[in-house]
Structures are given as structure tokens and as C-alpha cells.
Design a protein around this nucleic acid. Structure first.
Lengths: 416, 416
DNA sequence: AGGCTTTTTTTCGAGCCTCGAAATAATTAA
DNA sequence: TTAATTATTTCGAGGCTCGAAAAAAAGCCT
């Protein structure tokens, strides 16, 4: 069943730990790495020497602000930007973008395109995706900075192996094996990730203090998404990307949801639901798919100006989210929550009813203590999450194994 | 942050792996252990020799049915029953029991007591618990079979460290630090675990095929409990024993729950709720705490005989559980479910409405494929779960480290 | 300026651990 | 009785981490 630890695993893991420490801390000295990993100085010295010889890390003696301390100054090691490149691509409603990122995490080039995703054929959507990646990787020096990984974030559901987009609201076509398609095209490993999961990943890199072992990111947009980190690990479903918070049931057999079922949280708190309620449209009618962020912004302004119907629509949305979080908290205990996406701009209208609902649930015993953070613009987070996802893959799955490559030469992707 | 792997960890982990393989497989040969752990024969040989010398394992050459194969016969190794003992104790409504178990998992002695837990003072409850453990460990040969671990299962909520019973329906007293109390009394490590979590642990040992990486155990009794295994690990809350499925919200601001809040699943599917609905009592009235399993049995019989109100009460219960599972499945994807406890005897009345509700949720896309199992008597499961919890602790936290003890002498508990 | 102190990093030998190959052990088949 | 077969142990090689000592690279002090 569970597999024993072999002798060579040990080195691999400790190399991975060193790389992770450098990526986290930026420019740590060997001594600092030894402290954070609890490995001995000798071991760190040996591993660091190997990694530098392989071109993964590089010494950077920028003297810094120059520590005015007594003894031999620490010499900082950092990630060698030229060790690799990765592509972080994001496919969302009517928009497709890709970024080429170097190994240290710096964006080298970026491509963004508007396209009518809902109207595109399956083939056209795939072709556009390939094209935008091709555009961003074109013309770089393939010898010195090999492309080692592509991560594509999508709105919607992926399979557990992160290889196939099972379903997405941005296109009528499902079961698109982006992973295999891009892999065939570019010859390197590719994963397809849920956008909310990438948001969670990014939040942790941005603010590891607040978003540490357990937290939740809720994306309020046309639909409702969620990314969760529990026990320090991204929590996904057992067979899919999971975390379909928006489709937990708020009111059994209640309002009609975009997914065709009834009573989902999204059917009360998604943009279209808020619009439907604010305009007094029946709960069981289908609403056009093109309620824009601007429409919601206008509704929020109306609500703030005293429009009763609009105010009530946001109240209903807040309550739905609150009861949903309360049910979730009953299972996993309360955790910090980030409200991400355009909906965060109406958080002032939502927060009260939401906290009120949470307080009426089992998870709400300390509802006053649950802290919410808002990040209105989700796209940078999604890009960052993809970037870190791809880079840590390279760190752990390629460079941690190391060994085979000559000095300065990255491993062929086939080893990944 | 994350800590590097040292050289000695390696041995400890591989020893743990060998012990685990023996506990799982019963009487494997060294060759079989090598196969399941993917370690080399030499390594297994060395580790097995150590463990046998330490008295943890023992060769058992019972010839068995004697394999009629050609070469040298395999020699089976098994757990040495005399390596240790543990106590598995269960505190539930009006009942307290403790079992003394040897290292191979065989029950040596058992004590069961009836007591009116709701009426006992905090001190009396603690005293009774200590007494029942003392009774069961009394008079054994402490030299040869050291007592290394006590696990106490309770109905209710514990803290994350499994040291304190935070709240329980069986007593008005909360925040009882059973762990510290028993530890002070018996001088060995003690944990306090939620009963439903122990049920989940036990199910996995009983049927590892069906209850493998991901599954759910729902306890239907006076209240509604849940134990969940995700990714092969018991899933608990981040700060408590978690999994308070019964207090997810079924209908916002709905029926009055025993917890004082409104609309919890339990307020529709707990014994008291079924009784309340069957008797046409208002949803917001408090029901006596002493609805017995017999009362529910009688209601179930009435429902089967055509009593409309009773039938409707079970329908409501099934629907509440179904929507709850559906919401849960939206987050984690469907998984096998075991319905445990007396309520399983009315599963025929519950199943239809429950499946109907699940089918109307996002998790229900394949609701027909979700399989349910029923186990009416939960007590044996809880005992088994505690037992395995305690034994695997001894396996991994005490014997896997090994080393210090002389041959045949178990380690002192202080090392735990 | 030159020696001294302090701190960081590298070097070196010791001690474990796992592995593969070879040796040994315990049976059955012929 | 011998050969064949399978299981287990033994043995030497190769890796890895560790602690201690050495080397390196400063600042401090007279």
C-alpha cells in the first residue's frame, strides 16, 4: 500500500526543501536555510553547492544594505532566473491571456485577447488557446531558458488529475482535455486548474501570515466559486476540482440556478440572481447570461441610495452566502475568508446580512471573530496562483530530483 | 517552516511501514512485506530482525495450511500480543465501557456500566470514567504487557488536539480535559476522540476495499453525527473534532434544533425531530430528551403499516439528510456512505426521499451510483475504532522509533 | 597596519541506512 | 539422494547527514 522511503528519496526531499526555502524567503543565506529547514549546515552547504552547479540557484552578493555585523558576511542565494520559464494562462469569460514567467517569478512577456468564448466552436477555442501560448513563448532563447511547465486556469470544473476541463460556464463545450492538447503541442507537462483554487494559492503566497494553514477564498461574480486551503493544502474534491460552494443548497427546491437545479447558493447570490431579485423577476425564470459587472455596480449604487428592491436583493445574497459559510464552518470550523472578485465591491451591502446568517449557524459561535478581506480584482490573483503552481511544480518535480543534468543545463522535460 | 528529513527519520518511517504492513495483513512473510512496502528484501530482513529482537513482532511458524509450493516456505511474522496493551473506552448516553486490548488487537477484558450521565456531576462523571478504566486494567501483569495508551470516545465535540471534551449531549458539563485527567491518573498518553470519527476509522479496518480513500459515515441517533475520511485521512475540523454534519443548515430559520439554533439537519432528522413531526408538534417546540430508540422503532413500524404522519416524518428526515449530503458532495464529490446507528433500521423509510433530495443537488449527478451501507449497531464500531486508533499510535509513535529498549522490553511510556 | 574576534561556509571522517549480489536455508519434485 | 525452487540472511558498496574542525571573510581594537 503505502510505499517505503528509499535512500534517494531523502536527498530529493531535502533538495526540494532547500529550493522551497529559497523561493519563500527570497534571498536567504545558507545559515538561514539551515535554520528554517532544521538540516545541518554541512548538508545545506552540500545541497546548495549542487544546486548552484546545476544552475538552479545562484549566489547574489549584492552586499545588500550590508549587515554591519562583525563576522564573515552571509552570502545570499537566490533563484537563478534563467533556470527555466513557465507559462501561466487564464481562460475566462470573453478573455484569454498568457504570461511567460522566468524561474524567479518575474513576468517576461504577456498576451491578452478578447474573444467571445460563448460563441466559439470547440475547435476554435482550443486553437485560440494554443495560439496565445504560442505567441507568448515565441522568440525566446530556448537554449538558455527552457520552457518547463504550462498551467491553465479556467472558470469551471476540472477532473481530479487536472488534465481535463469537465465543464465551464464560459463555453457550451465540455470535456476538453486541454492538458493533453497543450502537452502534445508544446511537449511539456500541462495542468488545468480551477480559477478559485489558483486564487487560494496566490493568497497564501501574498500573505502567508493571514492565509496560512486554513482559509477560504470566495469568488463573487456571475457565479460563485470557492477555493479552500485546509491543513496547509489546497482542498479539492475527490474526483474533481471540487469546492462547488455556489451549488451547496441554500433553500431546498428554491430559486432556479443557472445549473438547472433549484435552491443553490448561486441562485441567490450570483450576479444574475441579484439582478433577478432586484428587478422583481420570478425566482424560477432564466435570466440572460450577460449581466455585466457594471449592471451590478449600478444596482449597488442604487441600493446605497436607498432603492429598497436593490437593497433587498443584496440582503438575500448576503444571507445565502452566510448560511452557506455557516454550514461549511459546521464541518471544518471557522477560518479566515477572502471575498474576491467584482462582488467584493458590494461587500458593504452584503456583510451585515451575511454575518447575521452565520451567527445563526453552528459555525457562527464566534462569528464576530471571523475576519473577511476583500480583493475586488481577481485576475491578478489567478495569474499569480498559476505562476506559483507552475514554479513549485518545477521546483519539486524537476529540480528537486536533479542529478542527471550537467552543470547549468536544465533537465529535459521528459523527466518531469 | 517545513522541516527537513534527517537520516534517522528514515529508519523510523520504514520501521513504521513494516509494522503497519503486519497489522494490515495479519501474518505476512518477509517477502510479502517487501512487496507491499517496495523496500528491498535486505532492508525488511534487517528491520524485522530488530523488531523481533525488541519483542514487537514474533515469528509464528504455524505451518498454516502449509503452502504446497516448491521452495523454502515463507515464515510468517505477526504482532507479538505481549508487546503492549491499550485501553479503548467509550462514554455515551447512560453508558460507559472500557476494554483492555492486547497488542495484536484481542480483547482481554471488558467492563460496562450503566449510569445516568445527564444527572451526574462533573466530578462524578470524571470519577466514574477513571474507575472503569482502573477496573479493566487492574490485576494484569504490568511487567510483561505494559499499558501504553488510552483512547476515550465520546459523543460530542473535542478540541483539535483530542485532549478535551468541549461539549457533549450526554452531560450538561463541558470543557472536561479527560486527556490530562486520565494521563495524570495512569501516566500514559490519552486522547479523547469523537465517536463518529472512530466509526469511520473502524469501517476502514473492517472493509478496506469499500472504505478506502474517501468515504462518509453518518450516525443516525438522537442527534446526527458524521465521520469522514478524505484522501485516506480522517477529516476533522481545523480547531475541533469537526464534521458537525447534523448542524449544517437545512432550512434557514427553520425548525428548532436541540442546539438552540434553527433549521439544522438534526432538527429534521434526529430522533427527537422525527418524533416531533410524527406527532404533529410545532417545529419550534422543545422535545423531551428521552425519546428512546424503541419509540422510533415503533414509529417506523407505524409508518410501514401506513401511518401517514409517521411516514411523512421519515420522509422529512430523509430529505434533510439528502440535501445535506448533496451540499457536502458539492464540496467534496460523492463518496460511499455508511448509515450507522439505530436510525439505520428505518433506512427503508428514509432512503427514497434521501436519494430524491440528493438527485436534486449538484452532488447528485450520479446519485444512483452512490452506494449506501447500513450498520445498525454503532457501539462495536466505536470500540473497534478506538482500539485501532490506540494501537496504530503505539505502532507509529512508540515502536517505530524503537531502538532504546532492550530485547523483549517495551519502551517506557515517557517516550511516547 | 596588523593581530584578534566573530560569524559564515566548507571540508573531512564517522556512522547509518538501503541496495544488489551472493550465500545460505528449507522445502518439494524427481 | 540429488536437483530445483523459493525465502531469508549476509556482506560489501555507495549515499546521505551530522558534528567537529578548518578555512574564509569580514569588523574591531590598539
Amino acid at each position: 500500500m503505502t510505499v517505503g522511503i528509499r535512500h534517494d528519496d531523502l536527498r530529493r526531499r531535502n533538495r526540494g526543501m532547500v529550493i522551497a526555502a529559497v523561493r519563500r524567503d527570497g534571498q536567504p543565506s545558507r545559515t538561514e536555510i539551515a535554520a528554517t529547514t532544521a538540516l545541518s549546515h554541512s548538508t545545506i552547504s552540500a545541497i546548495a553547492a549542487d544546486l548552484i552547479a546545476e544552475g538552479v540557484l545562484a549566489e547574489s552578493r549584492p552586499a545588500e544594505v550590508a549587515a554591519l555585523k562583525r563576522g564573515r558576511p552571509q552570502v545570499a542565494v537566490g533563484l537563478n532566473p534563467e533556470a527555466a520559464t513557465i507559462v501561466a494562462a487564464v481562460l475566462s469569460l470573453n478573455s484569454l491571456s498568457a504570461s511567460l514567467i522566468d524561474y524567479s517569478g518575474v513576468t517576461m512577456r504577456e498576451e491578452r485577447r478578447k474573444l467571445a468564448t460563448l460563441d466559439l466552436s470547440r475547435e476554435a477555442l482550443i486553437a485560440e488557446t494554443i495560439a496565445v501560448v504560442r505567441a507568448v513563448v515565441a522568440g525566446r532563447d530556448t537554449r538558455r531558458q527552457p520552457l518547463l511547465r504550462i498551467v491553465l486556469a479556467i472558470q469551471g470544473i476540472t477532473d481530479f488529475a487536472a488534465r481535463t476541463m469537465l465543464w465551464s460556464p464560459i463555453t457550451p463545450h465540455g470535456d476538453i482535455a486541454f492538458s493533453d492538447i497543450l502537452q502534445a503541442e508544446f511537449g511539456i507537462p500541462v495542468t488545468v486548474e480551477n480559477d478559485c483554487n489558483m486564487i487560494a494559492v496566490a493568497l497564501r503566497w501574498r500573505n502567508p501570515e493571514r492565509y496560512a494553514r486554513d482559509f477560504i477564498a470566495v469568488l463573487l461574480s456571475h457565479g460563485i466559486g470557492m477555493g479552500m486551503v485546509l491543513r496547509g493544502e489546497l482542498f479539492t474534491g475527490t474526483q474533481s476540482s471540487g469546492g462547488e460552494f455556489g451549488h451547496m443548497i441554500h433553500r431546498p427546491d428554491g430559486a432556479l440556478c443557472r445549473c438547472g437545479r433549484r435552491g443553490c447558493i448561486e441562485a441567490y447570490a450570483g450576479n444574475y440572481a441579484i439582478w433577478r431579485n432586484a428587478h422583481g423577476i420570478r425566482e424560477d425564470s432564466v435570466v440572460a447570461d450577460d449581466i455585466s459587472d457594471g449592471d451590478i455596480q449600478a444596482l449597488a449604487d442604487a441600493a446605497r441610495a436607498g432603492d429598497v428592491a436593490a437593497r433587498e436583493a443584496f440582503r438575500i445574497a448576503g444571507e445565502a452566502i452566510g448560511f452557506g459559510l455557516g454550514s461549511l464552518f459546521a464541518l471544518i470550523d471557522p477560518a479566515p475568508v477572502a471575498i474576491v472578485g467584482h462582488g467584493a465591491l458590494a461587500f458593504d451591502l452584503i456583510e451585515g446580512p451575511m454575518r447575521g446568517a452565520i451567527a445563526r449557524t453552528a459555525g457562527g459561535q464566534h462569528s464576530g471573530a471571523i475576519s473577511f478581506d476583500t480583493v475586488p480584482d481577481e485576475m491578478p490573483l489567478i495569474r499569480e496562483g498559476c505562476t506559483m503552481r507552475a514554479l513549485t511544480f518545477v521546483d519539486q518535480e524537476i529540480f528537486a530530483s536533479g542529478g542527471v543534468g550537467r552543470a547549468g543545463v536544465a533537465l529535459p522535460p521528459s523527466l518531469a
